[in-house]
């Protein structure tokens, strides 16, 4: 599905991401973890067209994406959310959800699809409100809704669990599993080991821009290199 080969992003002399490769299959949740400054955000920004890769290939279902604009990448079937809430404050939840469809020229069916996505995320009763009226956890859900409304093949969630209560995290975990079950792959970037371990089929660990380990969640949890990289602090 989404394939990243030899991705390198250099800022001047600093290699934020260094020869990193990743393969995400259809319908799985893949966790991308790593300590602060490991290059997770840069990887996401490079995949979604916000940072131009210095080197490397990125492709979705065989279609090359490296160097494309964020708009083209969304159209190709790759959507994302952001670490800091990036909802459009001047619009209702419903307008927030519908805009990506409008921007891609698919506004015809938008009312139906907005309702469907809102139901799936359990925010159907919030459609008429503006984001400022929502509790934090709900805003996160609206962001996810906005990312999945265009029915992307892969959705990239940048720290969606940050600041959520444990009930909200459980719900988030369920949402991601549902997405995967509906054939939408999820690339989850998060600090919360419990969320990652509970939701992911596979985990890739990034450290200093390089791939440190990859495998099943339970193997990653016990990998001595990973534990060392985290200094043991993330052991649940």
């Amino acid at each position: 599905m989404l394939s990243i080969e030899g991705l390198t992003v250099a800022f001047g002399g600093l290699r934020a991401v260094d020869d990193f490769s990743l393969e995400i299959d259809r319908g799985i949740v893949l966790g991308l973890i790593g300590p602060n400054g490991a290059g997770k955000s840069t990887t996401i920004n490079a995949i979604t067209g916000f940072v131009r890769p210095t080197q490397g290939r990125i492709s979705l279902a065989g279609k090359p994406l490296a160097g494309r604009s964020p708009q083209e990448i969304l159209r190709a079937g790759l959507a994302r959310t952001f670490q800091q809430a990036q909802l459009w404050a001047g619009m209702t939840v419903s307008q927030n959800l519908a805009l990506p469809l409008e921007a891609l020229g698919r506004s015809r069916a938008s009312a139906h699809e907005v309702g469907e996505v809102a139901e799936r995320l359990g925010i159907g009763d919030l459609l008429g409100l503006r984001p400022s009226a929502l509790p934090f956890g709900r805003r996160r859900l609206v962001e996810i809704g906005r990312a999945i409304i265009t029915k992307p093949a892969v959705v990239l969630l940048d720290e969606p669990g940050a600041g959520l209560t444990s009930a909200e995290k459980a719900n988030l975990s369920r949402v991601m599993r549902d997405l995967a079950a509906a054939d939408t792959s999820v690339l989850l970037v998060d600090h919360d080991m419990e969320l990652v371990m509970n939701s992911c089929d596979q985990v890739v660990v990034l450290n200093a821009g390089r791939r440190l380990a990859a495998g099943l969640p339970k193997d990653i949890r016990e990998d001595p290199a990973v534990i060392a990289a985290y200094l043991g602090t993330s052991q649940p």
Binding site: P70, Q71, A79, Q86, L87, W88, A103, L104
Partner: peptide
């Protein structure tokens, strides 16, 4: 109209607007 929504999207969160397909 759609134009008004594009403008507000760009004003409120330009990066998200770009990510969600707004030129």
């Amino acid at each position: 109209s759609r134009l008004g929504r594009y403008w507000v999207a760009i004003r409120d969160a330009p990066v998200a607007a770009a990510a969600m397909g707004v030129a």
